[in-house]
């Protein structure tokens, strides 16, 4: 076997990190405002679906990504209405939202394309390899800057301060004459746009069509990263990169046979590595995590 951690591994890690990173940032923004976001997975599905549909319709990947952000924001708006104004229990509403997204996707593709398995492959992407490579690089760069940007907004700007207050001490906002609910709603919608974009990277940049179930739990992994990182954007991004790095290593390890002390490592164990890592990470961390005080509580 060649060297495991080389340039190819790095690129593979970045590609795999892309959807996780964007969704995790959505998670940070949402949860810091005090709203639990189990719905990340569903928002990613909506983004992946909308992105693929727009690409098929227009032949343009950037438009697809943009459409996915809008779709994610719209989906999050529905979620916000239920949990912030309808006062639905946030975990339950989030789980319901995920199920809704899973169910709606085949319905939509069936209605538009007549196939319930996914969307047809987009011709435009196949014919323009060079452009899609550049776009992938651009979006990856953007995804790496977003955590820093969010850190800066949260810690250094007034909107960020309001957002943190909505999650820590909504009463103080209220007495200052600002509606914590509005702040939270804005945060949820922004998180929807980010998660939607994250989902769309799967169907628009990393492959060329939507397939049912293609998010494969990435929303939950992103959420795990957020919790493990103590709701801080930059550590959350690093955790996502570590997850992706493990996944990329796993993919490369699979290709050859591995023996440790004379025993062959089963491929299933290698494949379980990223999930195992997630589990261990959460278990180690959760004791000392600094939870936003009003997370999951009504404002």
């Amino acid at each position: 076997m060649n060297i495991l951690f080389d340039f190819e591994w790095l690129m593979s890690s970045l590609r795999l990190a892309l959807p996780l990173l964007l969704a995790a940032m959505g998670g940070v923004v949402c949860e810091r405002s005090g709203v639990v976001n189990i719905a990340l997975e569903g928002l990613m599905i909506i983004g992946a679906l909308a992105g693929a549909i727009v690409v098929v319709a227009t032949g343009s990947q950037p438009l697809g990504l943009f459409g996915a952000m809008i779709a994610g924001a719209v989906g999050a708006t529905i979620y916000a209405i239920f949990v912030i104004y309808g006062r639905a229990q946030q975990v339950v509403a989030g789980a319901a939202f995920n199920m809704l997204a899973i169910g709606v996707a085949p319905f939509v593709t069936k209605a538009i394309f007549g196939i319930s398995g996914g969307t047809p492959g987009a011709e435009g992407i196949a014919n323009n390899q060079e452009f899609s490579r550049m776009l992938l690089m651009g979006v990856t760069g953007f995804a790496l800057v977003v955590p820093i940007l969010i850190w800066w907004i949260l810690e250094r700007t007034r909107p960020g301060l309001l957002l943190r207050f909505a999650g820590e001490e909504p009463g103080a906002l209220e007495s200052a004459g600002i509606s914590p609910r509005k702040v939270r709603a804005a945060a949820v919608v922004a998180s929807g746009a980010l998660a939607g974009l994250g989902g769309a990277t799967l169907s628009v940049l990393l492959s060329s069509s939507f397939a049912r179930g293609m998010t494969g739990g990435r929303g939950f992994m992103a959420l795990a990263a957020v919790i493990f990182a103590g709701w801080r954007p930059i550590p959350a991004a690093i955790v996502c990169l570590v997850f992706a790095g493990a996944d990329a290593a796993q993919i490369r390890l699979q290709g050859s046979d591995h023996f440790v002390l004379g025993f062959e490592i089963p491929v299933q164990l290698i494949q379980a590595l990223p999930y195992l890592l997630t589990f261990i990470a959460i278990a180690l961390r959760s004791g000392s995590a600094r939870v936003p005080r009003y997370l999951g509580r009504e404002a």
Binding site: L16, L202, S207, A211, R212, M214, G216, Q271
Partner: peptide, 25 residues
């Protein structure tokens, strides 16, 4: 060289993962 997309039924619906495996190969 042989690879498998995964060990769960999600494996049949995971083009991004399959693409990564193919690129590595």
């Amino acid at each position: 060289v042989s690879n498998f997309v995964g060990v769960t039924a999600d494996s049949w619906n995971n083009p991004p993962k399959a693409k990564e495996l193919a690129l590595a190969q």
